[in-house]
Amino acid sequence: MTTTIYHNPACGTSRNTLALLIHAGIEPVVIDYLKTPPSRDELVAMIEAAGLTVREALREKGTPYAELGLDDPSLGDEALLDAMLAHPILINRPFVITPLGTRLCRPSERLLEILPKDGFSSAFSKEDGEAVLDEQGRPMGR
Rank of each mutant, 00 (worst) to 15 (best):
L18C: 08
D118E: 12
G62T: 07
E135G: 01
D118A: 07
F95R: 01
G12I: 09
G119P: 03
N92Q: 09
C105S: 07
E109Y: 05
L90K: 04
A57P: 08
P88A: 10
E127M: 12
R59M: 06
L85C: 10
H23V: 03
R15N: 09
E48S: 15
R15W: 09
D134R: 14
L20C: 09
Y33N: 11
R142Y: 09
G141W: 15
K126I: 02
Y33M: 10
A19M: 08
L75M: 12
S125L: 02
K35S: 14
T36I: 13
A50I: 08
L81R: 00
L70A: 04
F124G: 08
M84L: 02
L112Y: 05
L111R: 13
M84H: 01
D134W: 12
L20M: 09
G25N: 05
D77N: 06
Y65Q: 08
E113D: 14
M1A: 14
L133I: 07
L100V: 00
T102W: 03
T13Q: 03
I91M: 12
A66V: 14
A83Y: 13
Y33T: 07
L70I: 09
T2K: 06
E67R: 14
P73N: 11
L112Q: 04
E78A: 13
N92G: 05
T98A: 04
K117G: 04
I89E: 14
S125Q: 08
F95L: 03
P116E: 04
S74D: 06
T3S: 15
G69I: 13
A24I: 06
E67W: 00
I31H: 06
S122R: 13
I97W: 01
L34K: 15
L75P: 01
I5R: 10
T102E: 04
K126P: 02
H7C: 08
I47G: 09
A49N: 14
L68T: 13
G141F: 15
G119S: 14
S74E: 10
A79W: 00
Y33F: 15
G129R: 07
L115W: 11
I5Q: 07
P116F: 01
P38T: 09
K117H: 07
V132F: 05
C105K: 10
R15S: 10
S14C: 11
L43E: 05
V132T: 12
T17E: 08
I47M: 11
H87G: 01
S121K: 14
P99L: 03
E56R: 01
E109V: 13
D77L: 00
V96G: 05
D134E: 09
C105P: 08
R103G: 00
G119K: 07
S121D: 12
D77G: 01
E78C: 01
L70E: 01
Y65W: 10
F95K: 00
G51E: 07
G141P: 02
L100E: 09
L20I: 10
A49H: 07
T36N: 15
I97V: 15
L70F: 07
Y65N: 11
D72R: 05
P38Y: 12
L52H: 10
S122W: 00
R103W: 00
A66D: 15
T63W: 05
L58F: 04
D77A: 02
V132S: 06
T98M: 03
H7M: 09
V44C: 11
P116N: 04
Y65D: 06
T4Q: 11
Y6W: 15
G62P: 09
Q136A: 15
N8R: 15
E48W: 03
